[in-house]
Simulated assay, not measured.
Amino acid sequence: MKKSDPTEATAEAAPSQLIDAKIAALGDWQGETLARVRALIREADPEVVEEVKWRKPSNPLGVPVWEHDGIICTGETYKDRVKLTFAKGAALEDPSSLFNASLEGNTRRAIDFHEGDKIDEEALKTLIRAAVALNVSA
């Protein structure tokens, strides 16, 4: 994938367009990972709403956020990982032990994906559905 200019995304762009732009701007394994995780979230919950939050000059494309009756998870990128943070992750069953980051908090849990990691797609979709069910039940 080729990196693109994130400044091309305008303030009026729809959240899904901003997420598309972020994926294109990453252009490498991180973009591919974020795109795959996004596709799995949409497969797990066809009613998911995409948002972009926390836009600032140092991060003009913001942070992708997936919601269904509240935040399900966010997708952030760092130099060496893609982090999928579940807003209420500490309250979720994780039988496949996907959570591998932010384990010390009382609310959130995260999954860090590093270059070359294989995504357990079925387990991730199960976790997404559990997060949706928790949001809906609240």
Rank of each mutant, 00 (worst) to 15 (best):
M1R: 14
M1S: 03
M1I: 12
S4T: 14
D5H: 01
D5I: 02
D5V: 15
T7I: 10
T7A: 08
E8G: 11
T10I: 14
T10F: 09
T10L: 15
A13C: 08
A14Q: 13
A14R: 14
P15K: 10
S16R: 10
Q17F: 11
I19A: 05
I19L: 14
D20W: 08
A21R: 01
K22D: 08
I23Q: 11
A24F: 08
A24W: 02
A24L: 07
L26N: 04
L26Y: 00
L26A: 04
D28V: 13
D28R: 11
W29F: 03
Q30S: 13
Q30K: 15
Q30D: 11
G31R: 13
E32M: 01
L34S: 03
L34P: 00
R36S: 00
R38N: 08
A39V: 14
L40F: 14
L40M: 03
I41S: 00
I41M: 02
R42N: 03
R42A: 13
R42F: 10
E43D: 13
A44G: 06
D45F: 12
D45V: 15
P46Y: 08
V48S: 12
V48K: 09
V49C: 12
V49P: 03
V52W: 10
K53A: 11
R55I: 02
R55Y: 08
K56M: 05
K56L: 07
K56F: 02
P57D: 08
P57W: 10
N59V: 07
N59Y: 04
P60M: 00
P64M: 06
W66T: 13
W66F: 15
E67F: 07
E67H: 09
E67A: 12
D69Q: 07
D69T: 07
I71K: 01
I72H: 13
I72R: 13
G75P: 12
G75R: 12
G75C: 10
E76D: 11
T77G: 13
K79A: 12
D80H: 14
R81S: 09
R81F: 00
V82R: 10
T85D: 02
F86I: 05
A87N: 04
A90T: 07
A90D: 01
L92R: 04
L92G: 04
E93T: 14
S96G: 09
S96P: 02
S97N: 09
S97D: 04
S97V: 15
L98F: 04
F99K: 04
F99N: 09
S102M: 03
S102L: 14
L103K: 05
L103C: 00
E104V: 15
E104W: 10
N106P: 12
T107Q: 00
T107G: 02
R108T: 01
D112N: 15
F113Q: 03
D117R: 12
I119K: 02
I119M: 04
D120S: 02
D120P: 07
E121N: 08
E122H: 05
E122P: 00
L124D: 00
L124S: 14
L124N: 09
K125E: 11
T126Q: 12
L127R: 09
L127I: 01
R129L: 03
A130H: 03
A130C: 05
A131C: 14
A131Y: 00
V132N: 01
V132F: 01
A133R: 02
V136A: 04
S137P: 13
S137F: 04
